[in-house]
Write a protein that binds this DNA or RNA. Structure first.
Lengths: 246, 246
DNA sequence: CAAATATTAAATGTAAGACATATGAAATCT
DNA sequence: AGATTTCATATGTCTTACATTTAATATTTG
């Protein structure tokens, strides 16, 4: 058989690409077993070490899983929303931190996407989504909460909102945007007053979602975005002021 | 130094996780050089082959790049939006196809996300975004266009719309949703009449974006979603009817 | 002296072989 | 029939060796 490969890259990368194409194109289907490492090394005419490096690349993308033992081998993996989401979050997080994406840009994207969920969530949310939102609001009001804990609760609140839309694809997409913001959010100091403002908006949003009023929920999110942006703006201006006036 | 690792997984996976954490936490910064493979194998007390498998895992996620030669080695990679997007598209595509996500669900997510971009795009789009949309509309009207070409042009139209928002984070997030839909869209047969309906809506959307009317653009997208869903519904009902009445 | 050339050292890329370990299936023994 | 042992097969890991790339250094040469 001796599959052909595109040159100008490491052999292991070429082999990985070759197998990846087979998976994406559907030539290899979920749970199908790949040839053993020994067979692959014959097929591609490379050493077993090289084949293994290729397989590890694919495993890193959750495209395959491996099992040891007599009936073991590499199997095409059914990518789960959880696994995809986890990868998406690391990628998005690094993307923001490494490319100096401004707080403003990330925040805008996040709230734009959330507003996309608001009407659907208003329509379909279950009671437990409402409960989750209310619970987080309660947490956010606790006095001795650190900024990080406040942020974590904020994320949980928004995830409940997004999950309320009952669309796994939306939840998956949003997870990246929401979670990736967290490191940026953690740079913010939340005063008691700004927390109160955010909590008040959370309440109005939860109320709107519970009442099935998508437009009001969207408006609440817009107000929350404005509040967050203003808060970040004040803090960053203050900090750059401090360092500038040396 | 001899870093500690979490057990119950392959050594190469543990080592990859260890280095990945260092990158995500910021302990390793962009363009920083990792220790050589030989040094890593000493540090983690494993063979060079195992270290290499770990590094290939990281390379598959674009977290590092490697260079050969005297001053070569593995370097922390600045993840680009392009690279992240490409990965996201493969992942999203497989996610949809492997988990039997319904056309309905995927379509709903896609249009919800696009509506999130519409107001921003109406406000900020440059002339070349408008031009790109108009060009694609023209393409879509060509008589001897295959269904696949029509779909590809449709994707290009919507990408121009999304890019018009001028927010790279949004563009990145949306790319996954829009591109991943394409295999599903390709299952649809577009009659001349359905194409005309879609084109008419595209025109109204482009007009709204050009006029800076975000609400109208959103409405146009909603109408387009309804049109697409109805079209898919008719076709899938027809097909399942054909196969059911055996 | 300066520029072209050759050497060298350090790193990754690849190969080959060996052994360790896990695991299901078959053979064997109660 | 059921428990136990053996065995074959596959991945996981280590070792050693060599190929290749690349930049820096040393050497030669005009």
């Amino acid at each position: 058989m001796k599959s052909k490969l595109v040159p100008s890259a490491d052999l292991s990368a070429q082999i990985a690409a070759n197998i990846r194409d087979a998976i994406v194109s559907g030539a290899l289907i979920v749970d199908e077993r790949l040839p053993s490492e020994a067979e692959l090394s014959l097929k591609f005419n490379v050493s077993r070490a090289t084949v293994r490096e290729a397989l590890k690349r694919l495993a890193a993308q959750s495209l395959i899983r491996t099992q040891r033992g007599a009936t073991g081998g590499a199997f095409v993996n059914r990518i789960s929303f959880e696994a995809a989401q986890a990868q998406q979050i690391t990628t998005s997080t690094l993307l923001l931190s490494m490319n100096d994406v401004s707080f403003e840009t990330a925040c805008e994207a996040r709230y734009a996407l959330e507003r996309a969920c608001a009407p659907l969530s208003s329509e379909r949310r279950k009671q437990y989504h409402i409960n989750a939102m209310r619970d987080e609001i309660k947490v956010q009001g606790e006095a001795n909460l650190t900024d990080e804990e406040f942020c974590a609760s904020d994320v949980a609140f928004h995830r409940a909102l997004v999950d309320g839309a009952g669309n796994p694809v939306l939840s998956y997409q949003l997870a990246g945007a929401v979670e990736a913001m967290q490191p940026l959010m953690n740079m913010i100091t939340f005063t008691a007053r700004s927390r109160d403002a955010i909590i008040a908006l959370h309440i109005s949003i939860a109320d709107a979602i519970e009442a099935g009023d998508g437009a009001a929920a969207s408006a609440g999110l817009t107000a929350l975005e404005a509040e967050t942006q203003a808060l970040a703006h004040r803090i960053f201006a203050q900090r750059s002021g401090n360092t500038a006036q040396v």
